[in-house]
Amino acid sequence: MANQIKNNTGFFASLQESPSTDEFVKGLWRDNPVFVQVLGMCPVLAVSNTAINALAMGLATSFVLLMSNVLVSSLRNFIPKQVRIASYILIIATFVTMTDYIIQAISVDLHKALGAFISLIVVNCLILSRAEAFASKNTIGKSVLDALGMGFGFTFALFCLGAVREILGNGSIFGVPFFPDNFQEWIVMILPAGGFFTLAIWLLIFNAAKQRKATT
């Protein structure tokens, strides 16, 4: 353990030394919900076909995660153990419904692109797992940090997938052309199969990096 800390030099390591920022950084990197925990794969694979969809989905999920963590954490002494899961689902569903209205108010096109996946945030296991495993046992401050870390980690991961898929599959990033005109798009990257390919490559990179770190 001491050896590991010694080897961790640099920016992340200095942040990790403080316990409160650790809650934030762990979701962003060490316990990244997509690349390390492999949670919430349904939206990750389905809505990451363009960078903007990925970003919007990530932010929507982060918002729900943050709000539900805050509420679950502040009500943690009030909710009896027997009805906790029902209460969490109710709280999460409420914030998802609110997000649905807010996204509709922001842009009808975006709402159409995200479609059924907004309602499916309710059953994203990432959110319920953070409520059950973290927010129900920790203070509001820590839960906020945890939610922000996990949320940004999720958004970052979705964006990694979305950017690669849009660049290769559509030759653009955020709708702006990325390659010269004669670029032949890889249509498969936009299709569901492309989601699996891209995820596999990112997981490969993450695991290779982790292994290298462990052996050095």
Binding site: L75, F78, I79, P80, V83, A86, S87, L90, I91, A93, T94, F95, T97, M98, Y101, I102
Partner: peptide, 18 residues
């Protein structure tokens, strides 16, 4: 008490957003 309380709170938040 907990379920009803949370239910009312959630309903209120949804209605306000709507």
């Amino acid at each position: 008490q907990a379920m009803v309380g949370i239910g009312i709170l959630c309903a209120l938040m949804i209605v306000l957003t709507f």
